[in-house]
Design a protein around this nucleic acid. Structure first.
Lengths: 186, 186
DNA sequence: TGGAAACTTTTATTGAATAAATAGTTTTTT
DNA sequence: AAAAAACTATTTATTCAATAAAAGTTTCCA
């Protein structure tokens, strides 16, 4: 992929973290000191730019996920833990609190992201099913596991409750995964 | 407490489950075949009625909670599980999905409920702290436990994902608590 | 006394009109 | 060739008056 395309998408991510969805095509061009014409040469319209940026971001996640799954030094349960944490870890530079706000404002973009997350979960579900099959973890409905983890992540991101304590978002996430994986252990 | 007061508050709960917050004082009077005058004799205004109804509902929860804590046949960890499930269990007749919708529309009522839930958590936190103290469960930041459970409950309530499966909301809740309590076990 | 309904006043909703912002294009400049 | 700036055509936001709905009060009647 050409470098200008990447830098535009990076700028989109930066602006998103700064202002949520309230930024314009002019903001992007100003930030990069490029002309809007250049942006429109790369992307047909704003929507396509957004979609491409989402795809671009998730490609990195998929990449890391594959590495974890291929890593033979990890046992199955470690893989599961790592694959679950993988998403937010890769996206350390993204303000996920903003993502949940775009559900109403940009439902099309949001549903694209939701779809990606869903696809992402498929891998995790496979690993969980395999671990259940092998008797490594208890036989619990997978949707329950999924919803518990998703709910916890959303809570960690949306609450200010952690702000006061010493606990960071990342530590919370790891503690939570530890508890759940330990709780699932057969 | 007089019976007319109770029946009005019960009607409020029923209407809430039916229509969310979109019901009027006339709706209440029609449902009960009483005059608005009667309602206004018991309650100064709509707000006071709402507050009273919230307090009334949570009183039942507190009641059951006390019973659990006082029950000597239960060990500490069982008490924790039961106290956590206690809230939604008592509120089996309440549509909690509606509750989350009233965050924007009736922030005053919502914050009252949020306050109640917060107070409710204090008991659970005491039990968790005690169990940690006694070395029955791992030393994990209590906010992480709290947010994980709250997040999962909200997810169970807000998602349609369970609708397809055979898993009910209540089963999910119990599975989730099992996993977490098992995961916390030292 | 309390229900039914009529009535007043406050609050919420709607929609048209206007103004502002911004996507996307074209022109000018470096 | 691409940035900067100017431009236009849409979209989106804002305002405000008209309308409707609902809270709260009063009157009447069984």
């Amino acid at each position: 992929m050409n470098t200008i395309r990447k830098s535009i998408m990076d700028a989109v991510v930066d602006l998103f973290n700064e202002k949520g969805m309230k930024f314009t095509m002019d903001d992007i061009s100003k930030k990069l000191h490029i002309s809007k014409k250049t942006i429109y040469k790369e992307f047909d319209d704003k929507d396509e730019l957004f979609y491409a940026t989402v795809d671009y971001g998730f490609a990195a996640i998929k990449q890391k996920e594959s590495e974890i799954i291929a890593d033979d030094s990890l046992d199955l349960l470690d893989k599961i833990s790592k694959v679950i944490v993988c998403l937010p870890d890769n996206y350390r530079n993204i303000d996920f609190r903003q993502v949940y706000q775009l559900r109403e404002k940009y439902p099309v973009v949001y549903s694209r992201i939701a779809g990606k997350i869903e696809t992402d979960w498929e891998e995790t579900e496979k690993l969980l099913a395999e671990a259940m099959e092998k008797g490594l973890i208890k036989n619990v409905p997978i949707p329950v596991i999924k919803l518990t983890i998703e709910g916890a992540i959303e809570k960690f991101l949306s609450t200010q409750e952690l702000a006061g304590t010493q606990v960071t978002y990342e530590q919370s996430l790891n503690s939570m995964i530890d508890i759940i994986m330990n709780g699932l252990r057969a």
